[in-house]
Nucleic acid binder design. Structure first.
Length: 113
DNA sequence: TGCGTGACTTGAC
DNA sequence: CGTCAAGCCACGC
């Protein structure tokens, strides 16, 4: 597997919402995943799922961004790439994928939200 | 200030 | 199961 790098643009926005997204994502345990929507709900804004994705786009290095997937347990596609890396990182933590590239959220979803 | 865009979600078919 | 459309929020031009 060739090395994959993720192009990062801005990082560490000072936005309160962004900071809280990072703080919460940092708490996701190894081998567990959470959805964008679940994070948004946990932060009190159920409709900000897309904003969570926007925040993770420019997150700091210590944020385990790869533990965030969409509500269907699938890795969200993005033009900048990173799909393969995210999948590899998750598999390295013991997260298993179905043949369709999906994660069983009943098993690997972070329940502490 | 306005409008298009996106690492989303949900509900209809 | 799959696809489609609408709603949503923040960003950037």
């Amino acid at each position: 597997m060739p090395p994959i790098t993720i192009p990062r643009r801005r990082r560490g926005s000072a936005s309160p919402f962004f900071s809280r997204v990072y703080a919460l994502v940092r708490r996701i345990p190894r081998g567990r995943v959470a959805s964008y929507g679940a994070i948004a709900r946990a932060l009190g804004d159920p409709r900000a799922a897309r904003t969570v994705g926007w925040a993770l786009r420019a997150c700091a290095d210590d944020v385990p961004w790869h533990r965030v997937v969409n509500a269907q347990g699938m890795i969200s596609w993005r033009p900048t790439g990173g799909y393969q890396l995210q999948r590899a990182l998750l598999r390295g933590e013991g997260v298993r994928f179905t043949r369709g590239g999906r994660i069983d959220l009943e098993r690997f979803g972070w329940r502490a939200l």
